[in-house]
Design a binder for these strands. Structure first.
Length: 493
RNA sequence: GCGGGAAUAGUGUAGUGGUUAUCACAGGGGCUUCCCAAGCCCUUAACCCGGGUUCGAAUCCCGGUUUCCGCACCA
């Protein structure tokens, strides 16, 4: 429920998503399965459009893209550190059923040596006289908890990848060769990651299987100036000492808040993507990881967070992985993953949780009109459907005329809607609710003079007397001169 | 995982042991209107799963699942 005063933004988003087909819980006819969600028809289009924006923003700076496997041999994840770090040792109080991470129990009892194996953990616990912090009961029987999904393939142990990144690192040698030995090299990958979450919550926000968009940026040397941030967006930066700064990212580098220009540049790329998919800048900040929360591979990390229900939710992380991964793979595989002799590339990793980015976009764009009807203010670039064609009524040849125009519009804008049912106002409302930016109405003027009316979603304004030939003039409907009359309210701008 | 609520058409809900399972919105068809979810008529569509108690269970009990709220977890 939440407190009475708080407006819950998540619940209306989930309700809309179920009703209109953005996403819904997986396997619902079998009672559901927690932590898994399917994208419905609208969500699937939205997802591919947001991925495309992401790809474009990296392609514009010369990125190359690969697509590696989900199944990953144990050796790779041993090298990367995940096989060790992704197994938690835990302990449950037999009396009050409280669960603890073993290392927390050892530390809170003044111990410092964290056991490396389950055998060692058993020995430590049986000698340690550790008590449950809650009820004082003596704790016993530590066990392992796997955060990765394990798969058996013959005699091999494999895992479903916890991140897409390793697929890029293991291909580094081939990629560098493909790139004719040149750095910097930016490699991106779209795909699924899998984590055995103990208690998935909040629908698409925390899942066992999730969509990621990751980039590994391989940099020449340590100077950190291969890429220079150029934007003047004033951004809220919450640093590791919980100090807030409002400044653009190049100033943040000069003020030594962000560690390097390279790091700041990719923070900027991710920030602009969030704006591009329609997240309100007022909802955005970067938060720097404290030393004690950095992942095992990371030297410095800034999360992009979105404010939902007045709490900050991580949607992306821009980590400085240094030479960690390549060094590890050099050591474990014995392969030459150097460049220019003995140099190891430095890596910046902008990594985006796409499901969360999509949810943030929906939430940020959900608006209500004064009459209570809701609409989605998606930028036209990511709106699932961009145009709906609506005959004012079905009689007098309007339906046929509308169908004719619709089939021509589909040629230039394949994702368009045709809707003939119900009153015209109802049909506008239907399109508003799924965020279609433009409706084209076919009326008696169309029959007489071949002109249509274009109606814009956010303003509900109309332009009448748009010639059909103007409408069809440009392959990209969004760039059509017919829309200029909408001025600055146009959602595509 | 633990504790506590909850689970009924697509969505939101009513229903305290016997109902033809309520209502609204949404959806489909028709009439009417003809530029912003109007009106009228018709219509589709639901008791989470499995056991038990009972002559009889949507309703009571047990187990499971899902979900929400706390706690823990979130590399």
């Amino acid at each position: 429920m939440g407190s009475v005063n708080r407006v819950d933004e998540l619940e209306p988003m989930i309700e809309l998503s179920k009703r209109r087909g953005f996403f819904w819980p997986s396997f619902s006819i079998y009672g559901g399965f927690s932590g898994l969600n399917d994208y419905g028809p609208l969500g699937t289009i939205l997802k591919s459009r947001i991925y495309l924006e992401w790809k474009n923003s990296f392609a514009r700076i010369g990125a190359i893209e690969i697509d590696s496997t989900d199944l990953t041999p144990e050796a790779v994840l041993k090298a990367s550190g995940h096989a060790d770090k992704f197994i938690d040792m835990a302990i449950t109080c037999s009396k009050c059923k409280s669960r603890y991470k073993l290392e927390n129990i050892i530390e809170s009892n003044g111990g410092s040596k964290i056991p490396e194996s389950i055998e060692e953990a058993r020995a430590t616990v049986s000698n340690g006289n550790f008590k449950c912090p809650k009820c004082g009961n003596l704790l016993a029987d530590p066990y392992e908890f796997h955060l990765m999904f394990e798969i058996r393939s013959g005699n091999e142990t494999m895992y479903l990848r916890p991140e897409t990144a390793q697929g890029i690192f293991v291909n580094f040698k081939l990629l560098l060769n493909y790139n004719r030995g040149k750095l910097p090299m930016i490699v991106i990958q779209q795909g699924k990651g899998y984590r055995n979450e103990i208690s998935p919550r909040q629908g698409v926000i925390r899942q066992k299987e999730f969509n990621m968009g990751e980039a590994e940026v391989f940099l020449d040397g340590q100077d950190g100036n291969s890429f220079i941030p150029g934007g003047d967006d004033i951004i809220l930066l919450h640093d590791m000492n919980s100090q807030d700064h409002r400044m653009d990212l190049s100033s943040a580098v000069q003020s030594r808040i962000v560690g390097s220009n390279d790091h700041a540049f990719f923070m900027e790329i991710v920030y602009r993507l969030a704006l591009k998919v329609g997240v309100d800048p007022e909802r955005l900040r970067f938060r720097q990881h404290r030393k004690d929360e950095l992942a095992h591979y990371s030297r410095e990390c800034w999360d992009l967070e979105v404010k939902i229900n007045d709490t900050w939710l991580e949607v992306a992380g821009i980590a400085d992985r240094g030479t960690y991964d390549l060094s590890r793979h050099i050591k474990e595989s014995g392969e030459n993953l150097y460049y220019e002799g003995q140099k190891i590339a430095n890596v910046i990793e902008p990594s985006i949780g796409m499901d969360r980015m999509i949810a943030a976009s929906i939430i940020s764009n959900m608006k209500k009109r004064e009459n209570g009807y809701s609409y989605l203010t998606f930028p036209a670039d990511i709106a699932p459907y961009r145009v709906a064609v609506l005959p004012l009524q079905k009689k007098d040849g309007l339906l046929e005329k509308a169908r004719d125009i619709f089939s021509k519009i589909q040629e230039i804008e394949p994702y368009s809607v045709f809707d003939e049912s119900g009153a015209i106002g109802r049909r506008y409302a239907r399109q508003d609710e799924i965020g279609t930016p433009y409706c084209i109405t076919i009326d008696y003027e169309t029959l007489e003079r071949d002109v249509v009316t274009i109606r814009e979603r956010n303003s509900t304004l109309q332009i009448r007397d748009v010639k059909v030939e103007t409408l069809l003039e440009f392959p990209l409907f969004l760039k059509n001169p017919a829309l200029k009359k909408f001025g600055s309210e146009q959602p595509g701008q």
